[in-house]
Amino acid sequence: MNAILTGGFADPSTQSAHAFRALLEAMARPGRIFTVAGAQPPAPISVAAGVALLTLTDSTTPLHLAGDADCEALRGWIGFHTGAPLVPAEQAQFALGGWEALQPVTRFRTGEPSYPDRSATLIVELDRLEPEGARLTGPGIQTEARLSLPETAAFRANRALFPLGFDCILTCGARLAALPRSTTVEDA
């Protein structure tokens, strides 16, 4: 029970402001890794994923929990701290889980041609997040960036849908990076 009540922001306005600046910089500069703090979600969820949930989700944002993330402890924690309604993948505005658990990612909303912003944001839990591997180019990247992605085909297919598509926040421990739909991903 205690695990549900604790682990939120102690000072929501300033902690979420700091967290959002990291998320904003991450989304603006795809592939760059930022460290965040302030949330202690129950296992197996990372600090960074918890911070992203507390900063971006509330009772107006349908959330999908995939795989390990769909556990009693986390459902209670999200219910208490954010109030986000839990929904199937097809209806989700946000989704949380490991890359395998989120498959097939084509289930998620990619927006409508006239409203491409009505699309899902995936919070992808990774075991490893390093500035190496797949080559990223596109808006927000001066020349190129490197990021250890679980695969590249799904992100290339997502890029091909532009301006439709989902956007990803990649989390590992207290670190996060972002991969918006606008980024071109190539194999290392």
Binding site: F20, T57, D167
Partner: peptide, 17 residues
Amino acid sequence: EQTKRMIRRALLKALAI
């Protein structure tokens, strides 16, 4: 805070598109 979250979500989508 709820208003800020709404604006922040819009800002992230704006950067993505």
